[in-house]
């Protein structure tokens, strides 16, 4: 199969080059790395993440600056791209404050949503106690949402409760999670944990039904293999 040259290499349009460069030069930042290591239970080291700069990074932009680009953007809005593009350019930042109702409604749930732990929730998750609501830290929470770290802590609490042999307690905590984070990003993870907990508590039929329902709803999920483990004779599941 013949390989085409990359557009960035063959283009003679400054606009094209600037756009392609923007796509190619995107980098994560140190904060992202630190958060990721923490979420994995790997304490963030002092190692500095590779510098996110590159010598060529700003070159294409030098040729496509100021008014010219503004015109380009507004032209896009006028023709075919979503008009909100232009609108969004003027709303770059939203205050990182959670509306009071969010915190208040979360606080009634039985799951303790621990503050994001520096060393990562996987290792340091506190054991949740029902009926002991903790304040949700505001600064790291997007409006209307619980942070990923908090979701992780909640699920880790359920997991460690189950690890102590208290599957019923884990189910209670998972109920709390479902109530607190109905649209949680780890919702699928939570469903799998529920299936685990049901199986552990001896409710194998129920576990199987949940697993089958999970597979119907999320056949392509990366977690499907786990659910399949409960719908097939043990050991026969492959990945």
């Amino acid at each position: 199969m013949s390989e085409l040259r990359r557009l960035l290499d063959e283009s003679d349009s400054e606009t094209e080059k600037a756009l392609l460069h923007a796509g190619r030069s995107y980098r994560s930042n140190r904060e992202t790395r630190a958060k990721t290591l923490a979420a994995l239970g790997l304490a963030s080291s002092t190692a500095v993440v590779a510098a996110s700069t590159s010598a060529a990074a700003s070159v294409p932009f030098a040729k496509l600056t100021g008014a010219k680009l503004l015109i380009a953007v507004s032209a896009v809005g006028a023709v075919s791209l979503a008009p909100i593009a232009y609108h969004e350019l003027h709303h770059d930042r939203a205050p990182a404050v959670v509306p009071a109702r969010t915190v208040a409604s979360r606080a009634t749930a039985p799951v303790v949503l621990a503050a994001p732990a520096v060393e990562g929730p996987a290792r340091t998750a506190p054991v949740a106690k029902t009926g002991a609501p903790a304040p949700v830290p505001r600064s790291s929470v997007r409006a209307g949402e619980v942070s990923l770290a908090q979701e992780l802590s909640a699920l880790d609490a359920a997991r460690s409760t189950m690890a102590r042999g208290d599957a019923q307690g884990a189910l209670l905590l998972l109920d709390g999670y479902a109530k607190t984070c109905p649209q949680g990003r780890l919702k699928l993870e939570a469903e799998l944990l529920r299936i685990d907990a049901l199986a552990k508590s001896g409710q194998t039929q129920s576990a199987r039904r949940h697993a089958e329902a999970f597979l119907r709803r999320h056949p392509g999920s990366v977690l499907a293999a786990r659910a399949r483990g409960y719908t097939e004779p043990r050991g026969s599941s492959d990945d």
Partner: peptide
């Protein structure tokens, strides 16, 4: 995330380019 050496004007432009992309 921007090139740390970019000028403020370029930062703004990079952001706009990104939105356009």
């Amino acid at each position: 995330t921007f090139d740390a050496r970019a000028t403020p004007e370029q930062l703004t432009d990079q952001k706009r380019v990104r939105h356009l992309l």
